[in-house]
Design a protein around this nucleic acid. Structure first.
Lengths: 321, 321
DNA sequence: GATAGGTGTGTAATCGATTAACTACGCCCT
DNA sequence: AGGGCGTAGTTAATCGATTACACACCTATC
């Protein structure tokens, strides 16, 4: 910057003003400075700028698993929305591990992100408290924690799950296997609670960990237990369940019915296409980013609750007619 | 930091020394400083540190599309490897747009990332030159550019493509539709060049853009053109082709054979399972990260060429027997 | 007991920007 | 002519760390 100033025959202050579009510099000076910048190929150092202004124009996003297309899509939406407001997003991958999540959150805070979006790995409020104590704007996404004190953006699947339960019961299924998420995550608990409640005693629950492998194992256990219908509470566990069903040579929906929470582009391609509860992922990501930006700007955004929708495709069999 | 120093009754220099594990401070001082840090909940400002040391411990990764599971997996691997070496990764999503890619690259350079991994959207070497001119370590991943002067990490599918061509020809297919990537990307060009060459005149090529929609359109065109076999050069276009095949009610492999470049966890679940050319994505990501770290440490890593493998699963029909 | 050498800390410059406070230079008005 | 005022630009403090250099103190040696 000093070089640019020298080159243009002005002080660094003037260069800075030109850079930041301040009113002061005369058009002529401005021209000279811009020419110098161009000539020297100067690019301002964002670190120095941030240090001085205490604003990094960066959001942190800590998600549970980048490999999960659900989160990838969310990340994409967050990034889109943030960019359209001039913000960058730094993504941290927690790998469903609370420790790694904490490490990442601290790293991002150390780098002074302007705000943080978190999909908490567990419902332990400790980390959230730590961030809030640091005074950094925080929004929870997809999952919440016990006694959360910050805005939360999530999808509400109650209605869809209830409708799904009604269909399954109506079709005469009496042993319905629920492949639930980990009980220490809000989504893991709530989704299965709602479904189990609506199934009124017909449900058998096995908890997985939102990963493919656990989906296969849970499916195996439930099929062995005599289930005639399976509901996987997340797309990766759904993938695992499908694998197990295929391995055993069972036919959907003839031998076993299946529904999955989370839609994926390839679900309609299966034979039969898979019935799902589709979450408005893109909207969730955008809404979360918007809430966070509002928070950063000193507003008090409300919680956002979007509704997930039941999409019938055929994998429940007659139940769908 | 000043507060911590005051609290411990030492100077900021000593605090800094404790923080950075310098030999100097006596165990007793060290204790006092650590206690003060603990008590005040002090966390060092990474921006200030980076400004002073000109090292951010951060790698930039600019990929074409986070929604593409291939790139998501790569991102994951890069992140893993980087983290294990104490580096963070900032991911930029270029959305297959050269402009957005350039914007992101510049933003990352402004933030002084220690090195950059790039999956270039086009094979135009201009951006690469710009980065190199800035003296920032750069490694290209998956794709290369014309006359690249930096290390490149990619998968070589020639062998697998040739084997695939042999099988298709051997099975008597005489009109083979190739759904290629954009001709201005190295992977888009090279993959189809190899395959078309190996098919010796039996190929019909339609270029897509590595997105689902273009896969459907290309498939439609090729099927209308009388193709009895399709090869999609990337998983998203493969997904599109599958959709088109399903829409038309065609049966694989009876009515049409299909193979896809890039494996996906759900390909084995289809009926029949899809034959693919599988790339070692995780290894690519890790290798790229390692090359970049080597470059940062002043070494001169070689290009890395991993081999993609043909995985026969049944979607080619008799050709596979 | 003076000197050399080693050790633990402090002082202050520095990284590259932003910005408050100040200066210098017209220009207008009485 | 002189005072007031607006404007363009400069000087220097600042953000929060790192680190070269200086300094004080202690110990070992002759």
């Amino acid at each position: 910057m000093k070089d640019v100033a020298q080159h243009a025959g002005v002080s660094t202050a003037t260069v800075s003003r030109v850079l930041n579009g301040h009113a002061a510099p005369t058009p002529e000076t401005r021209e000279r400075v811009l020419a110098a910048i161009e000539e020297l190929g100067y690019r301002p150092n964002a670190l120095a700028r941030s240090l001085r202004t205490t604003s990094t124009q960066t959001l942190g996003l800590v998600i549970s698993d980048l490999l999960n297309p659900f989160f990838a899509e969310i990340a994409r939406a967050v990034e889109d929305e943030a960019r359209s407001h001039g913000y960058c997003v730094v993504i941290g991958n927690a790998d469903e591990s609370a420790e790694q999540e904490a490490t990442y959150v601290r790293t991002l805070l150390d780098r002074r992100v302007d705000g943080l979006l978190l999909c908490p790995a567990t419902d332990d409020p400790e980390l959230v408290r730590e961030v809030s104590a640091g005074g950094v704007p925080l929004v929870l996404l997809d999952r919440t924690v016990r006694g959360a004190t910050c805005p939360v953006v999530r999808a509400d699947g109650s209605e869809a799950l209830t409708a799904l339960a009604r269909r399954l019961v109506g079709a005469g299924h009496s042993r319905i296997g629920v492949i639930a998420g980990p009980p220490n995550t809000s989504t893991g608990r709530e989704r299965s609670d709602v479904l189990v409640g609506a199934l009124g005693g017909l449900a058998q629950v096995v908890h997985g960990d939102f990963r493919q492998e656990s989906g296969s194992q849970a499916a195996a256990k439930l099929i062995d237990g005599g289930a005639t219908a399976l509901v996987a509470m997340d797309n990766l566990m759904g993938l695992g369940a499908l694998g197990e069903i295929k391995t055993r040579g069972l036919r959907i929906p003839h031998d076993i019915a299946l529904a999955v929470f989370d839609d994926q582009p390839w679900f309609p391609l299966l034979d039969p296409p898979i019935t799902v509860i589709a979450q408005p992922t893109v909207e969730m990501g955008r809404a979360a980013a918007r809430s966070l930006l509002a928070l950063i700007n000193g507003q008090q955004p409300d919680d956002v609750r979007l509704t997930a929708k039941l999409v019938l495709r055929g994998s429940l069999g007659e139940a769908e007619l």
